[in-house]
Amino acid sequence: MMLSCKEATRLMSMQMDRELSMGERLQLALHLTACAGCRNFRKQIGFLRTVTRKFGDQIDDS
């Protein structure tokens, strides 16, 4: 059963906070091979993490 994009986005978000099960990882990998939108989504939420961690450094004393 192929994941929908909506389900895939939930799994990609969860994967940033915990280990996915083998089944979840397999389903997600299959979905990502077929879906450019979800591949972009994954890169983008990874970028959000980078940005948020750097945000504190951007705050100046003014």
Binding site: S4, C5, K6, C35, C38, N40, K43
Partner: peptide, 20 residues
Amino acid sequence: SLFDTQGHWGSDAPRSWQSP
């Protein structure tokens, strides 16, 4: 509203961000 009735991306599927 981002997804169609099957749960797949609608017209607003994520596009690549240029040089983020």
